[in-house]
Design a protein around this nucleic acid. Structure first.
Lengths: 210, 210, 210, 210
DNA sequence: AATGAATGAGAGTTCATTCAT
DNA sequence: GATGAATGAACTCTCATTCAT
């Protein structure tokens, strides 16, 4: 049997190297951001960490800003995908289940690659990055909004507000853990409390329909 | 009659002027940060906005970093003072009162000078700034921890964890409003929900003692 | 006997493509020079305009400088050929005829492809290009010198000086038209005046022999 | 009587140094252009030749282009001033006088600082520089046009055309000398011939009024 | 022959910081 | 204290050139 699988690194002569290079560059960016901070993140440093030349960085990204946006986008796409997936899976479930799964999923993706998450927190916000963040955050709230509307044991008068408060209340604690203000070891306890927090919140703002 | 008026730069010989200058510089820093972003925040720009020379900026701050730390510190001091004040005032109160006042106080200080709050969000994090932020955040959690311990109608098994989750859950929603992901107009509704959120949370994790 | 001559790339099957390619590249160079200026003339831009890859440009020219020299040389060859042709044709003619035909021929070749002429004007001079220009200009002066010596109605004491002044006096006005300082519409009037100018000049410096 | 004269280097503490620096930079630019050519003219090289830091160059010129434009402008201003001065002085004179003085003045200014003139010839033309050159050239033609109109012994039907041809016919020969195609030693002979050339030209296109 | 991704030296430019006035 | 011209290290980005395919 020959060569059955050949996933991700599919390679036609021309494309393969590029794909790899792009990924290597993105990864190197995160590493530099993490180990040296944003102020020290120069395109040269990224290239050298990636093991390529500066020129190669510019072959794929027109400028430093674009590179940062790409890094952010890739990370947030992971997050939003996890959130949207869980929202899909939990449709029609009870408030308790919804709270539990949404919180777990969110905390998990963010802490799964703490380096990447941390690296992004170190970035200064600006027009370009804000836009990416805002649009993905909004997408997440929409997903949660829909999910709430499908809830089996309650109705919410202002589901979008509830979605805002709920997602918002997750962002902060996770940030505290990523920045080290709260030790990562407490992540499980924090997660458990966040589930409680959200569950009780949903109960208090939802009109029971059972 | 000589020289009756002598506005803004009211000055008793030596100090007055400096105080004013320092404030003007700090304020100018926030304005530049806000209007042009961190990348465009140069000491020259700050000086020009403040109406002084670059040299003067360096008279008060040894370097750019120190200037930024000063801006952050000044802002966070306002926040922590408000929080510590409310924690002091609410000692011995019920969970409901505690949640209500802490949430209100926090949201209020942050939204009271949205420009300053926003400006700080635009900053990249780094060792120096992280340290200031971490220590002040921790101080806030301690204050809340103490407050919880004095609560009249409940006991908390792990008050520091509760403090973390509680403060954490406020950070996110406020950030969403500052960055514009959530319109500032919804601040009242969001605050109301946050009060609810915290109240219910405290109820669910506290052991009633009445 | 093999390998007799193989000048200007005349060719057999495989070579054909090259001729076309070379021309396309040279033409593309002029276009880029014209539309974007010398500063923006990159080998990549030339290649793309020519519809070939950068590599192909380097197949024919060892470096950018050589490409520029080739463009200049090709253009100046046209000019010198026209001038030498007219000098040949007018041998033994009168001063009036000589002035008329030389001026007309020169102005005509230069304005015949104004884009190419203009493109070359946009180039910075440097050792390599200066050399080409100097040697071709000198060749032109020699041709005119010879022509003057053959003049039927006058003798010139210092024909080379006369050739210099005569060719020199044509260069400027044509340049003014090419650069747009003088509108191209006036080219006929300018030409007529240049003929007059040269005719009278020759008359005044030549010793009549009739 | 104190301090009667104090021309060019007028110096109030603040201005003096700047004026000097600016001049030094402009001069250094010409030197670099001359000794290394346009391709090698980098802002760093200019600064180092001027004995200042790169930063200082940028203190006075926003970018390299502006520096070049300044060099060109300064040089052409000298030229135009000389031309305008002679045009003023010769008002009402005869064709012969006009031709003689205009030609002499032009050739003289250009050859007076052959290095500067040569340096500018080495520059690639582009939008910015073209504009300066075109406008100053036009100014020169206007001055000559006016002068011709005041000529005491002739009337010109199309003085602007005559001005174009006349100035044009000077540009070329001077360029040939500057570029070395014609040795500078022949400058006197060339000048003499140019005077003849212009004189005869004016005679042939002017309608005598005596 | 043709391609174009990769290279990396080097260019233009910025800006934190100093210091003579 | 205040000023701002001067500095120059360091950054972002470009582009001539190469070479494996």
């Amino acid at each position: 049997m020959v060569n059955t699988i050949n996933i991700s690194p599919r390679k036609s002569p021309l494309q393969q190297r590029s794909i790899a290079t792009v990924d290597v560059i993105l990864e190197a960016t995160i590493q530099v951001l993490l180990s040296q901070g944003h102020d020290a993140m120069t395109t040269a440093r990224v290239a050298s960490r990636a093991g390529v030349s500066v020129g190669s960085v510019y072959q794929y990204y027109p400028n430093k800003q674009a590179l940062l946006v790409a890094v952010i986008t890739r990370h947030l796409n992971n997050v939003i995908q996890a959130v949207e997936r869980v929202c899909q899976e939990q449709r029609g479930q009870s408030m308790a289940e919804i709270a539990k799964h949404v919180v777990s999923a969110y905390v998990q993706v963010k802490l799964q690659r703490p380096d990447a998450s941390r690296a992004l927190l170190a970035l200064p916000s600006n027009a370009a990055t804000n836009h990416v963040i805002a649009s993905i955050t909004t997408r997440g709230q929409l997903a949660i909004c829909d999910l709430l509307a499908s809830c089996s044991d309650a109705r919410f008068q202002d589901p979008s507000l509830v979605a805002i408060v709920m997602t918002g209340s997750l962002i902060g604690p996770v940030q505290l853990m990523l920045t080290g203000v709260v030790p990562l070891e407490r992540s499980e306890a924090v997660t458990a409390h966040l589930i409680l927090l959200c569950t009780e919140y949903l109960r208090s703002v939802g009109d029971s329909i059972i």
